[in-house]
Amino acid sequence: MSRRTFRPIHLLAGLVALGLASGCAAAPEVGQASVAGPASQRARAASPFWVDPDSPAARQVHGWRQQGRTADAETLERIAGQPVALWPAGETDPGPQIRAAAGAARRADRTLLLTAYNIPHRDCGQHSAGGAADADAYRDWIERFAAAIGDTEALVVLEPDAIAHVISGCTPVELEPEREALLREAVARLTRQPHTRVYLDAGNPAWIKEPWKLADPLRRAGVADADGFALNVANFQTDAVATAYARELSKALGGRHFVIDTSRNGRGPLDGVWCNPPGRALGTRPTTDTGVPGLDAYLWIKRPGESDGDCEGGPQAGRWWPEYALELARNSGAQG
């Protein structure tokens, strides 16, 4: 079982949630003024998570309304009105950004969604290459990250791809013990915060085909002390595929709970294209009312509309790409 449980959601939240089934974002202090539209108000009723009224999507909605692009703005509200995870930059102190968002989440009586993505040798030199300079730099970054959360209710997805890269052989063998130790230490540090839940990333079903292969590395990385594991971050596997895979992995881990990223899986994957595949759609809206034992939440961890990398016409990884965001939103039109 998870160490903590989510706050109960009103019945209305579950009913609304049924309607729909890796980048850095600024998080200045949020005051009363906001560009958030009606969809943001509906999202607050539909899930316990905080909706950033100054997200790139919300700013784009505001800009398009000013330009008279009313129809596009209304369509993009399908993203702007939903809670998405904040990915603090690894190159700077994450404290100020997290504290600002945490303060806003507390005032709204909502749970803050965060992704910690700064492990050394991150992404094996690919589109999102980077990460902390060394182990000590990472420990310092995680300390600042965790301290900034304070007593805010928060959910943290810890280091997308880090374990899967170990299993796939992308991470050099000599670096594996350090990586697992850093993840274990990060779990321990983050779970010291009184209202923080932590889910250790476990890749996606299309990457590591056999879920049992993840079990031992996840154990060595501290999953037993976390609230569970996360699947499908920044990927496109359907809810059904991800859930079936998660159940198998959960069994191998003695019943650990899990969360699934549904931000862009409304039409499933596109064969052979993982980086900015065209024709995709938003998936199940963020909610803790999943109806699936062990599945703690559907979440939007990858921020819809932020590029996977400079592929398929997209900008650098993590950059806001309004055309792609609009396509995702348009393609989810039949879902709400």
Results as ranks from 00 to 15, higher is better:
residue 220 R to I: 09
residue 218 L to K: 03
residue 239 D to Q: 11
residue 202 A to L: 13
residue 240 A to P: 12
residue 203 G to H: 03
residue 218 L to P: 06
residue 229 F to C: 09
residue 207 W to H: 10
residue 239 D to H: 05
residue 234 A to D: 14
residue 197 R to W: 02
residue 240 A to F: 10
residue 240 A to V: 15
residue 191 T to I: 00
residue 206 A to T: 13
residue 195 H to R: 15
residue 200 L to N: 07
residue 221 A to E: 07
residue 203 G to P: 12
residue 232 N to V: 10
residue 219 R to Y: 06
residue 195 H to V: 02
residue 227 D to F: 02
residue 221 A to T: 08
residue 199 Y to K: 05
residue 213 K to G: 06
residue 209 K to S: 14
residue 210 E to F: 00
residue 207 W to K: 08
residue 231 L to K: 09
residue 209 K to Y: 07
residue 210 E to N: 12
residue 230 A to E: 01
residue 233 V to L: 00
residue 237 Q to I: 08
residue 207 W to P: 04
residue 212 W to S: 13
residue 214 L to T: 02
residue 224 A to M: 11
residue 190 L to S: 03
residue 190 L to E: 01
residue 195 H to S: 10
residue 237 Q to N: 15
residue 192 R to I: 01
residue 228 G to A: 03
residue 223 V to C: 05
residue 240 A to S: 15
residue 208 I to G: 05
residue 194 P to C: 04
residue 206 A to Y: 07
residue 205 P to D: 09
residue 240 A to G: 13
residue 213 K to F: 06
residue 214 L to E: 01
residue 220 R to A: 15
residue 200 L to H: 08
residue 226 A to I: 11
residue 221 A to Q: 08
residue 195 H to W: 00
residue 230 A to G: 06
residue 211 P to F: 04
residue 227 D to N: 04
residue 204 N to K: 07
residue 207 W to R: 09
residue 216 D to L: 13
residue 193 Q to L: 00
residue 191 T to Y: 02
residue 238 T to M: 08
residue 211 P to H: 07
residue 226 A to K: 08
residue 215 A to F: 02
residue 223 V to Y: 02
residue 214 L to K: 02
residue 222 G to T: 10
residue 204 N to L: 09
residue 222 G to S: 08
residue 216 D to N: 14
residue 192 R to W: 04
residue 204 N to T: 14
residue 228 G to F: 01
residue 207 W to T: 11
residue 226 A to F: 10
residue 198 V to I: 09
residue 203 G to A: 04
residue 191 T to P: 02
residue 193 Q to A: 06
residue 218 L to E: 06
residue 223 V to M: 05
